[in-house]
Nucleic acid binder design. Structure first.
Lengths: 127, 127
DNA sequence: ACTTGACTTCGAGCGCACTCAAACATCTAC
DNA sequence: GTAGATGTTTGAGTGCGCTCGAAGTCAAGT
């Protein structure tokens, strides 16, 4: 007795909208999901895992096109593992790079805020 | 004698394309830039500073709409400084939140890569 | 003066990632 | 069994942020 999820449940579980779940399946990002007797989708835990993984890639800025390529590799069999590692490492490096940029930008933002706060303090005293 | 920049120079200086520089000016993100005798834009250092600031906001995920609102506030005068601080602080919080998510995602990505590497190592030994 | 390349405006077009609509089927609770 | 929510497919529509094209003007080198 394996628990399954309706599309709405899957949406709530993963934070990905039902519309988007169908969309991902349509474009091949997600393998065809199993169906109940009436043709309704039944998401397994494994499906949710895939969705969460994809969702993480998206959140970290990977384009759909590239995600599709990765998914293709996983479908092609175990011999593509080196390439999959390569894709993920490349993405990890891009993410690290973005995080570094973000840190610098955060500092700049803090400086800007400080400047405004000083300006505001100045105005308060003058008033 | 204040140095000025052609649109191409400004593009190289700021990393924002000439097309985008005109676009930003068109939609009011950038105050009208000074012109040379023939109507060509002449960017001042101050203009470049504005562009760099806007570019930083964009890079950190602020929507153009929100940037425009901020720019509006700066045009409206010094009495809007508290609101500007509010906008920047809100954005800073969003950025911090994204950075935290990124850190978690990075860890997940590392784990996934490790799993693949172990799998690959296993395959090597078996072969 | 002439050529070559950069610049101008303005509207249109594009790529991305959804998001929705319509018309219809099925499931759930009463 | 019936109402009402939820599901299905397919194609079309949306919002964002550029990006480009056309037609014309201007600048710099020879």
């Amino acid at each position: 007795m394996t628990t399954t999820y309706t599309i709405q449940d899957a949406a709530e579980e993963t934070g990905v909208s039902a519309h988007t779940l169908r969309y991902y399946e349509r474009i091949g990002l997600l393998a065809p999901v199993g169906r109940g007797p009436g043709g309704h989708r039944r998401y397994t835990e494994g499906d949710l895992g895939s969705v969460r993984f994809l969702s993480m890639l998206r959140a970290t800025g990977m384009p759909i096109r590239e995600m599709a390529e990765f998914v293709e590799l996983t479908r092609a069999g175990d011999h593509t593992i080196p390439w999959r590692i390569e894709v993920l490492e490349k993405h990890r490096d891009a993410l690290r790079s973005r995080m570094a940029d973000d840190a610098a930008h955060l500092a700049a933002l803090d400086r800007k805020i400080s400047i405004y706060q000083d300006l505001q303090e100045e105005a308060r005293k003058t008033a």
